[in-house]
């Protein structure tokens, strides 16, 4: 890595302060055009370490850029990943304060919880399904710290892939994880359908997203894995929908359950 630890730390502090102080900033690659993928993840890891040092619990991991079409457009072969925190968790039906966020958007996802950790290389969908303890409907609230959403992929990685809040559905019915590519999802804002999608949007099958995460972490090095008993958000089934104060979001998953949240 070309950047020394101190510089990476400084970027991490700058980005985390933007999150904590609810301030939009310019993208990291404006200050550092030569930022490498490795350095972008190193900044994210610094942000994670800062939070853990303050007593924040990491509750899981999340995937982004999980559309093959978008990956092809951007000329990359891997999606991107980040982490989620205890203070990001919002109960189903709960309120999310707009005051704490910059310009949030919501997207419908599926979450996986594994019964045993998985680490690549060589993890495939089948191995993920065999290691899966449960799946849950989940809505992610993303909130890029970059002004006007002007960013590139490396800047997004450094910014913990825009992670902000998440809601896991509490009223669910059993759904076969192997059928998730056929899962139909409808996202309503204040009673009208504003976005919909099918599970296959996520890398062909949401379990493929967990497999790719395990393989990416395996490449990263010793000790990196998809942990057991942590929530893995697999990536957007719907597009990300902007929200405003007062909005009610209801996401319905066919034969699986629903998630609702309220922006105040």
């Amino acid at each position: 890595m070309a950047l020394d630890w101190k510089t990476l730390e400084a970027f991490a502090e700058h980005l985390e302060n933007a999150e904590l102080e609810r301030r939009a900033i310019t993208k990291i690659t404006d200050d550092c055009p030569d930022l490498s993928w490795e350095e972008a993840y190193a900044i994210q890891d610094c942000i994670r370490a800062r939070k853990v040092a303050r007593g924040v619990r990491i509750t899981g991991l999340k995937m982004g850029l999980t559309s093959l079409a978008k990956m092809t457009q951007m000329g990359v072969e891997d999606p991107i990943h980040g982490f989620i925190t205890d203070y990001g968790m919002v109960p189903d039906g709960g309120e999310i304060a707009m005051d704490a966020l910059i310009h949030p958007k919501v997207e419908a996802e599926v979450g996986f919880v594994l019964k045993r950790p998985l680490s690549g290389p060589g993890v495939d969908i089948d191995m993920v399904l065999a290691a899966t303890d449960r799946i849950v409907p989940a809505v992610e609230v993303i909130d890029s710290r970059y002004r006007d959403f002007r960013f590139d992929l490396k800047s997004v990685i450094a910014d913990n892939t825009s992670a902000a809040r998440y809601v896991v559905g509490s009223s669910t019915t059993p759904f076969a994880a192997s059928d998730l590519h056929r899962l139909n999802v409808v996202l309503e804002k204040n009673g009208s359908v504003v976005a919909e999608g099918v599970g296959a949007t996520v890398l062909g099958h949401p379990a493929a997203s967990v497999a790719m995460l395990a393989n990416m972490l395996g490449r990263k090095g010793e000790g990196w894995e998809v942990p057991a008993e942590a929530l893995i958000l697999t990536g957007g089934i719907t597009e990300a929908v902007p929200v405003a104060r007062g909005d009610w979001i209801d996401v319905r998953y066919k034969d699986f359950g629903s998630v609702s949240l309220h922006f105040v």
Binding site: S67, L68, A69, N184, V185, V186, V193, A195, E196, G197, V198, A200, T201, G204, I237, K254
Partner: peptide
């Protein structure tokens, strides 16, 4: 896969 959707849309 370029697009997915549900008819409730």
């Amino acid at each position: 896969i370029e697009e997915t959707g549900v008819s409730a849309g």
